[in-house]
Amino acid sequence: MNDRLKTLADAGVSIWLDDLSRERIESGNLAALIEEKSVVGVTTNPTIFAGAIANGERYDAQVRQLVADDASVDRVIFELTTEDVRNACDIFKRVADGSASDGRVSIEVEPTLANDTAGTIASAQALWAAVDRGNALVKIPATKEGLPAITAAIAQGISVNVTLIFGTTRYQEVMDAYMTGLEQARDAGLDLGEIQSVASFFVSRIDTEIDRRLDEIGTDEAAALKGKAALANARLAYAAYEEVLASDRWKQLAEAGAVKQRPLWASTGVKSEAYPDTLYVTELVVADTVNTMPEKTMDAFGDHGEVTGDTVTGRAAQAQEVFDRLAAAGVDFEDVLVTVEHEGVDKFKTSWTELTETVEKQMAAARP
């Protein structure tokens, strides 16, 4: 067991791996990460699957069978990815059985549906049914069109990983969508204790965009603010989460058996070499949260990461000061949020294209 990662886990941070492949599943690597690196969950996306399928011979037999059955590329993608997530869920079942909220494996709705509410709901239903594991999570983006889809999925008892959250206002809308779904599920007689959700708040992309704008401003005051926005943003988000937990509305749902929608820190790999490679882990330590990490970031923390206590709770005022200074320096944060959400949706769609092209190549190679 890696002592540094165990210390992080003991501080209440659930360590999830932002990666999955059939190689990890079948070689025993995924099971080893549970035992050796305190990993208690997995997140995936189309780019992750594209890399796994392109580099893994373990998919070849299934691809050949699907090609022989005259399956479309979309069907092949669906079958390959849901099988991996189903098998990963089985590996994490022991963790899920011993935990209120961990042992979860996420699979994403088709990203091209990010602005299509009905399509997102249908995709979530199909993925949930195909994986058929209670410890799965379906990833739905927190776009305006995604919000009602989140409510609808939760109301039907589908556990959801809400992804692509960048700002506190949208995060508040996500929490509202979750609670509305829970209220509908309760009224329909569903067991709220079986419904899980995390809210994936993206971190590093905020610094990337704001640092770029600060460089353009070019003042000493602007330079002094580089690398501060993402952490401040996450800390304000956590304060918003605490407000919801203290609300009468949430307390009523909790009494009915509802499970907290934990904040999940996503995009925690550092994009700038100017910052410590464990920055978005060390500075976001607070109990009952999730940090989903690329293996590179996880290994960096396992090598030299430090837990210095709770680095989030009670820091909202300091975080707001950062945004006040950013505004004074000329950074329009609302425009930043629009920019990063649009870029995020575009990247999601690009990753789907990448996955589609990868699978098409594998299908071509599998044909006689």
Rank of each mutant, 00 (worst) to 15 (best):
A232P: 02
A274R: 15
D132H: 15
L214K: 12
Y241S: 09
A136Y: 13
S159I: 05
E145S: 12
M179H: 10
G193I: 13
K144M: 11
W265A: 00
V259L: 13
T143W: 09
Q261Y: 13
A129N: 11
K144H: 13
L164D: 03
V203A: 13
G269M: 08
A130G: 11
G146F: 00
L190R: 12
G167A: 12
W250S: 03
R213S: 02
I140Y: 03
D207C: 14
K226P: 02
T143E: 12
R213F: 08
V138K: 00
Y238K: 01
K144E: 13
D220C: 06
V270S: 08
I154G: 02
D211T: 15
R212F: 09
P141H: 09
L231E: 03
I158F: 12
A258W: 03
V244M: 09
G193S: 13
I150C: 05
V160K: 04
I210W: 02
L231A: 15
R212A: 10
A234T: 04
I210E: 01
A224V: 06
L137Q: 11
S197I: 04
L225C: 01
R262N: 11
G157Y: 00
A254L: 09
A149C: 09
I195L: 15
A239G: 13
R235F: 12
T169P: 05
L236V: 05
E221T: 09
R205T: 04
A222V: 06
R235L: 14
S267I: 09
T143A: 12
L231S: 09
A266P: 06
G181H: 01
L164E: 02
F201K: 05
V138N: 01
Q172M: 04
E255G: 14
E255C: 04
G269P: 10
G157Q: 06
V160T: 11
V203Y: 12
I150Q: 00
G269L: 11
R212P: 09
A229V: 06
E209A: 11
L231W: 11
Q172H: 10
N135P: 15
I210C: 06
G134C: 08
I217M: 02
R205S: 04
G218I: 10
K271W: 04
S247H: 06
I140T: 08
L137A: 05
A258H: 05
W250V: 08
A155Q: 10
K260F: 10
E255V: 08
F166Y: 15
P263H: 07
V131N: 00
V162M: 12
A230R: 14
A185W: 04
E221G: 09
G181V: 00
T219N: 07
A258V: 07
L225Y: 03
W265Y: 04
N135C: 12
R262E: 14
W250E: 05
A153N: 07
I195M: 15
Y238S: 01
V203T: 15
G146W: 01
A254W: 13
A254Q: 10
A149M: 04
G218M: 13
P148E: 06
A254H: 07
E173H: 11
P263W: 08
R212I: 04
A177E: 00
A239I: 08
T151D: 11
